[in-house]
């Protein structure tokens, strides 16, 4: 089996994987980072979104080997110790999550969205979250959270 090396949440990791192993399986099963979720098998729901070199990527549609040499950030790597990332904080303040299953992917996508569009309109947030499905919140509070998170990230 080939070996893959990458940095995950700031830590160098190395693992033997099958060629068909998906990045999400490496994260969840080999590295124990179960915060990244799998909600579908067609790249639609976005529960598996992580950052690879700062860009949001669906880890269920990325082979582990494709992440060779990259810097991967998962939901577990966002907070600075006990201090939540402003987007995590905004989701909490705005009740932007219910069951929590879509949340890690939603937060990762939202951060990337705001990095690309620091001062988004409500419509830009709704369009930007097209790749993330939430079944619980009706998106209302997620949109509020992302707008608030964007403001906090602008500082």
């Amino acid at each position: 089996m080939p070996t893959v090396k990458m940095t995950v949440n700031g830590k160098a990791v190395s693992a033997e994987v099958e060629a068909r192993t998906l990045l999400v399986n490496l994260l969840r099963e080999k590295l124990g980072l179960t915060g990244t979720h799998v909600g579908c098998d067609t790249s639609q729901c976005g529960a598996c979104v992580v950052h690879i070199d700062g860009k949001s990527v669906k880890s269920c549609t990325t082979l582990a080997l494709q992440a060779e040499g990259t810097k991967v950030t998962t939901i577990e790597g966002l907070a600075n110790g006990e201090k939540l990332h402003p987007m995590q904080e905004a989701f909490r303040d705005n009740h932007g999550l219910q069951c929590g299953f879509c949340t890690p992917g939603m937060v990762m996508s939202a951060i990337c969205l705001v990095k690309e569009t620091p001062n988004p309109t409500e419509k830009q947030v709704r369009d930007g979250l097209e790749g993330n499905i939430c079944r619980c919140t009706g998106y209302h509070n997620i949109v509020q959270a992302v707008l608030a998170g964007a403001k906090a990230m602008r500082g």
Binding site: L33, T34, G35, Q88, F91, R92, G100
Partner: peptide
Amino acid sequence: RRREDARFLTGRG
């Protein structure tokens, strides 16, 4: 504010 959010927002659910 919800108490369960702390774990869900940090991948610790």
